[in-house]
Simulated assay, not measured.
Amino acid sequence: MIRYPIFEKGAKIGITAPSSGVPESLHHLLHAAIERMQQRGYNVKTCPSAWRQSLVRSASDGTRGQEFNDLMSDPDVTLIFPPWGGELLIEMLEYVDFEKVQEKWVLGYSDVSSLLLAITLRTGVATAHGTNFIDLRGSQTDPTTAMWETVLQTNVHETIVQHSSTSFQQHWEHDNPTEWVFHLTEKTEWKSINKNDQEISGRLVGGCIDTIRHLIGTPYGDVSTFQKDTVGGDPLLWYFENVSLSPTDMKRTLMQMKYAGWFDHCSGIVFGRSSAEDSGNGYKYTDVYQELSDALQVPLLYDLDCGHLPPQVTLVNGAYGTIVLKEGNGKVVQRFIP
């Protein structure tokens, strides 16, 4: 069964960097995010790794693992919230004490999703794929991103509904932030590979495809046992976001997932928006989507509010989700079923 953490207004938030930390030149961003969170009524505990960055890591793999374990064992911390993602989180997984993982939310995306998926698959504790801590430093928060609080405050057996954004950000302008940090200039349109309206339901699992693919064949990626035992045979609804995989690399990755059994008992697949570009050889991401949908005989949606072109909805690994697409607009319904 899935165990859902409890998060309340005024809770203590633990900031650790299991992947990349914040270099000194950008400490002002972390200070601003901490201040905003305190203004919202939260207490914030910051670990040393959040303020450090060397050779693409915040700290050694063992140090990162120990910080995470320490926050897990701190009775006052109810949310573990990395500043952002990175590239080498996978190094610290062997230092995470999964036997002592408690019902605490862990929230993030990008490289952090490798930790999120591993926790849910290994322990049955729900985790949340959504905004970065750093991106909450604005004086305002757009309606889509702001739902992170409401989602995390949802109780077991309750239902939470999120809607697609009206516009999204195509390019980062870190030196020119708006009041909500992002520059939401492009019209949002969720799409279906067969161009029809769709409704897909299943237990949500997924993350950044660039990084979670490396869990295949490891103790941290046992999807089959999770599907059969933890969620009682419920079908899986996969969500992915792509940072930089080319269409051919993505296809290879998806085939590996298929061969590894990750798509057994799959009800559908959704992809978030991506800044990655088609390779120029005529083979496009939409070709990959179509081929995958045909091979698995499941519906496939894309350009959802998920990933590196914000804003993004908050998706809970382990929750029973229903994703609805109608005339380019979308809705995510999540039921916190054990």
Rank of each mutant, 00 (worst) to 15 (best):
M1N: 15
Y4W: 04
I13M: 02
G14R: 00
S20C: 14
V22C: 12
H27R: 06
H28E: 15
A32R: 02
A32D: 08
M37Y: 00
R40E: 01
G41Y: 00
N43E: 14
C47G: 00
P48V: 00
S49I: 03
Q53C: 11
S54T: 13
V56S: 00
R57K: 13
S58T: 03
G62M: 01
T63C: 00
T63D: 06
Q66G: 05
Q66T: 12
F68M: 07
S73E: 15
S73A: 14
G85N: 08
L89D: 04
E94Q: 14
E94F: 05
Y95D: 09
F98H: 09
K100V: 07
V106C: 01
D111A: 06
V112D: 01
L116C: 07
L121W: 04
T123W: 01
A128V: 11
D135T: 07
D135C: 03
T145K: 02
A146M: 05
T150M: 12
T150N: 12
V156E: 07
E158K: 15
T159L: 14
W172H: 10
N176F: 11
T178K: 04
F182R: 03
L184Q: 01
T185V: 13
T188C: 15
E189G: 09
E189H: 13
K191C: 15
K195F: 13
D197E: 11
D197I: 01
T211Y: 01
H214R: 07
L215C: 03
G217S: 09
G221A: 06
S224F: 00
T230L: 09
V231E: 04
G232L: 13
G233P: 05
E241T: 14
T248W: 10
D249G: 04
R252L: 09
T253C: 13
Y259A: 14
G261L: 10
F271Q: 07
R273C: 08
R273S: 09
S274G: 06
S275M: 11
S275G: 12
E277H: 12
V288W: 03
Q290P: 05
A295P: 07
V298D: 10
P299T: 13
D305T: 06
D305S: 12
H308Y: 09
V316H: 02
G318C: 05
V324E: 14
E327G: 09
N329K: 11
V332K: 01
V332A: 00
V333L: 14
V333E: 13
Q334F: 07
Q334K: 11
